[in-house]
């Protein structure tokens, strides 16, 4: 019996689902070259390069960047650049912290018995079984009550007043990222034999050296995939950020959401295209690095 035998039904369904997954993305990318500023209809790709932007009503006839007119426009948009900066800052900080904290917890849960083990293990499932919006409004309530209290008791005023911002977003991101990191690393630790560490200690390495030279290199692939998951979760997050951000801490998803409720120019499509490309390249290269380390 051929193990790779497939029924025509499965193949047809597969093609259909892949089409369903990719059609919207292809459309999105296509419209980023749209000549129409209103972006309602596809008026063809901006045809020509020229000294400066030439418009005919809402149609772009030619542009210094040619078909990539909207991408150039985007580069001039300070709001987008700021949002992109915020998004990266938050994602990188939150990924580093949640990976460290989550890996520690994974080691604890996989290796040790301690009193609050069950509590720690169960609390990891909170972000999975509770809708994100509940966590979002919970964090918002916490921060607003806490800040209200602190601002009034400490008599803070003006710029010193505590308010929602990049810190509250990052801190909340870390909270929902830790469980995912922990669960991923924990799953990878399941096959990890204690005897490797014992061998290192047996050969004269103390606890810290053992961790640095043996444990960490061996669990690194698991930690990396945990970090990768955390990073994409942070980049992708809308709901928690929506409730915990404040002035000056707008992230890209929040920015795009804001645009969708107003006028949409093909700039949004250009932004989306870049986003897809960046994430695609980042994930692909990380995947390749990981494959290499796992093979080695």
């Amino acid at each position: 019996m051929n193990p790779f035998r497939r029924s025509p039904f499965v193949i047809a369904a597969t093609i259909l689902v892949y089409f369903f997954l990719y059609a919207p993305i292809v459309g999105l990318v296509l419209y980023s070259f749209n000549a129409s500023r209103t972006n309602v209809k596809f008026e063809g790709i901006i045809p020509a390069f020229s000294e400066r932007v030439v418009m005919d009503g809402s149609l772009v006839k030619s542009s210094p960047c040619g078909p990539f007119h909207w991408y150039c426009d985007l580069a001039k948009n300070d709001d987008v650049l700021e949002a992109a900066g915020n998004t990266l800052k938050i994602a990188i900080t939150a990924t580093i912290l949640s990976t460290i904290i989550g890996t520690m917890a994974a080691l604890a849960l996989q290796r040790y018995d301690f009193k609050l083990k069950l509590f720690s293990q169960v609390s990891l499932y909170i972000p999975i079984v509770i809708p994100e919006i509940v966590m979002g409004i919970g964090a918002l309530t916490l921060f607003s009550q806490l800040f209200q209290f602190l601002n009034s008791t400490l008599n803070l005023s003006g710029d010193a007043r505590l308010s929602l911002g990049i810190v509250t977003v990052t801190v909340s991101h870390i909270a929902f990222m830790i469980p995912f990191v922990t669960l991923v690393v924990q799953a990878r630790l399941q096959g990890f034999d204690k005897s490797f560490e014992e061998a290192a200690m047996d050969l004269g390495a103390d606890e810290w050296t053992t961790f640095r030279r043996v444990t960490f290199p061996m669990i690194l692939p698991g930690v990396l995939s945990g970090a990768l998951l955390a990073f994409t979760l942070s980049l992708d997050d809308f709901v928690i950020t929506f409730f915990t951000n404040g002035p000056g801490s707008t992230t890209l998803p929040i920015y795009v959401y804001g645009l969708l409720r107003r006028i949409i120019t093909p700039q949004v499509n250009a932004l989306s295209t870049i986003w897809i490309l960046v994430v695609f390249i980042a994930v692909l290269s990380l995947q390749l690095i990981q494959n290499r380390t796992e093979k080695a």
């Binding site: 034999d193 005897s195 490797f196 014992e198 061998a199 290192a200 200690m201 047996d202 050969l203 004269g204 390495a205 103390d206 606890e207 043996v214 290199p217 061996m218 080695a296």
Partner: peptide, 20 residues
């Protein structure tokens, strides 16, 4: 005394060779 301070060494059942 922790293992790294003992002058004994072990050959493990699964060898425990560092794969990396």
């Amino acid at each position: 005394t922790p293992p790294f301070q003992r002058k004994v060494n072990t050959v493990f059942q699964n060898y425990a060779l560092f794969q990396h």
